[in-house]
């Protein structure tokens, strides 16, 4: 009971702060948009086939790069004025800080994805409405995996001298399974293949999510403690 109150308190204060400044969301969204546009320049004009082959990759580069940007910022905010110490002083398991920041990042990344997806459909001339349920499932599982290790690494990077610079270097190699699974399954779904065909990918995403959520939750305390 007290746990959910505190969990929500952390998420809520991040949301209020974000609604006021909009700095996380706007920078993530504009960055994702830029990635779509820049990559479109890189691959077109090309054949329709080339466009279909490259589209899922471009989409996930946009999501993960924008995600890394937001993840880094979310912990940098806690380091300002040493707020992270204020959080650590609070009673209770410190894993709750991880969980709250993870859920917050999930919300921010999800919001960016929801807004970017229609633009992607327009720019790359793909129909996403008929495949929306499967696409949502892929987005959900992949974003959980990416945000779980991402939140932990963001906490690490924020504690180093280089701040956010280290985050992508830590995050992207470890997130390789998520990125490959996301790109491949998105590609299959865009080709109109049935969900059963991507079941192995979804299983992999699910295993990644479960394994790393647990590990990150447990090890978070070691990352923030001095």
């Amino acid at each position: 009971m007290g746990y959910t109150v505190r969990l929500w308190a952390i998420i809520y204060k991040d949301l209020v702060s974000e609604f006021r400044t909009k700095e996380l969301f706007s920078s993530m969204f504009v960055f994702a948009l830029l990635v779509l546009i820049i990559f479109n320049f890189a691959f077109s004009p090309g054949t329709r086939e080339l466009q279909l082959v490259t589209a899922p990759g471009i989409l996930w580069v946009a999501f993960t790069f924008a995600g890394a940007l937001g993840l880094g910022r979310s912990f940098a905010l806690e380091r300002e004025k040493d707020c992270i110490h204020g959080l650590m002083l609070c009673p209770g398991d410190r894993g709750i800080i991880f969980l709250a920041k993870f859920l917050g990042n999930l919300l921010f990344m999800g919001a960016v994805e929801v807004i970017t997806l229609p633009l992607f459909a327009i720019f790359f001339n793909v129909r996403i409405l008929p495949i929306l349920p499967s696409l949502t499932l892929i987005l959900f599982l992949s974003t959980i995996g990416f945000a779980s290790v991402g939140t932990l690494f963001a906490a690490m990077a924020a504690a180093t001298k280089t701040r956010e610079v280290l985050l992508p270097i830590l995050l992207f190699p470890v997130a390789v399974p998520v990125i490959i699974a996301a790109v491949k399954s998105t590609g299959r779904v865009l080709e109109g293949r049935p969900l059963s065909e991507i079941a192995p990918w979804l299983n992999m995403l699910l295993s990644f999510d479960v394994i790393f959520l647990v590990i990150c939750y447990i090890t978070f305390e070691y990352v923030v403690e001095e």
Partner: peptide
Amino acid sequence: IGVISHQTYLYENLTAYENLRFYGRMYG
């Protein structure tokens, strides 16, 4: 324990009331 440091541990984009309500909830 209450800690006061030269860093405030306060969120600058929240109001005084919101900051206190946040920490109050964290302590139950």
